[in-house]
Amino acid sequence: MTITTTRRFAAIGLALALAACGSETRFASPIAPPEVRVPSSFPSLEVAEVTLPSYAAAEDIYLRGADGAISPAGTLWADLPARAITLQLSRDLATITGVTVAPEPWPFRPFPAARVDVRLEEMLATAEGTFRLAGQYFVAPEAGGRAASGQFAIVEPIGGESAAAIANARGRAVARLAEEIAREGL
């Protein structure tokens, strides 16, 4: 690890800690509709609540240090990460595919044509100034159609030393995941 990497991580941690001092500061990923369009072989999709590693399921924003230790940054996500990511995936998949997409529980009749299940193994900022989102996705048709699964490891530059920059990077990473699921799984 270089001195520059160590300094960057220290600066990110300090900025996040200062942002948290004296208040319960929360950060949301901005809504940015995807511009990519990919047709879906399914007319409707249900997105199961995203599963997260235990550290990422909490409201805290986490950082992985150069030594590999995963620690809370001292600031919070605006919403529970599983809920926020599930809602963003639903919104982004609907925009990308043009089909009816909703998070579970399915609010419509009849049942959805397929279910998308995302299981994250990693969701955090790193000492290298990146945001990592890694795991697996599964697409299960209700009746007929092609089942699909895939692994992903998405890395987005944070582009700053603030919790807002981390939230922006998370939003971009989830949008890239929605595009990958649409291209490879639907």
Rank of each mutant, 00 (worst) to 15 (best):
V116P: 11
L18D: 12
Q88F: 01
P72Q: 09
E121C: 03
R64F: 05
A15C: 11
F111L: 15
S23M: 04
R183C: 02
F138V: 07
E184N: 15
A84P: 05
P112T: 01
Q88I: 03
T51V: 10
A147I: 02
L18C: 09
G135I: 07
F111V: 14
L45T: 07
A167G: 02
A82S: 15
V101W: 06
T126H: 08
F108T: 08
T95D: 00
Y55L: 04
A28Y: 06
F42P: 01
S41F: 10
E179F: 04
A69I: 03
A32H: 07
A148I: 02
A10M: 12
Y137G: 10
R170S: 02
V101R: 02
V50T: 13
C21A: 11
P33F: 00
R8G: 02
A153S: 15
P34Q: 00
A114W: 13
F27S: 01
L177Y: 11
P33A: 00
P105N: 04
R91S: 01
L133W: 03
A32L: 07
V47A: 08
T25V: 09
L14E: 15
A169I: 06
E122V: 13
A57W: 03
P112K: 12
G74T: 09
A165P: 08
L186K: 07
R176Q: 13
T2G: 10
A48H: 09
A147M: 09
A134D: 07
E179M: 02
G74N: 06
G135F: 05
A147G: 05
P105L: 02
L186M: 14
G144D: 12
A173E: 12
L87S: 13
G171V: 11
S149L: 05
P43M: 03
P81C: 01
A10F: 09
R7C: 05
M1N: 09
P105Y: 04
R64S: 12
I70H: 10
A82P: 05
F138A: 03
P72K: 02
A165I: 03
R64Q: 15
V101C: 01
R132W: 12
T75M: 10
L87T: 10
L133M: 03
V118P: 11
P34N: 00
G98S: 10
G13V: 08
F108K: 12
P43G: 00
R146M: 07
R109C: 02
E35L: 10
A66V: 15
S40F: 07
Y137V: 10
P107S: 01
L16N: 14
L120F: 00
V99E: 04
E161V: 09
A167N: 09
F42W: 10
V50E: 08
E104N: 09
I166D: 06
L14K: 13
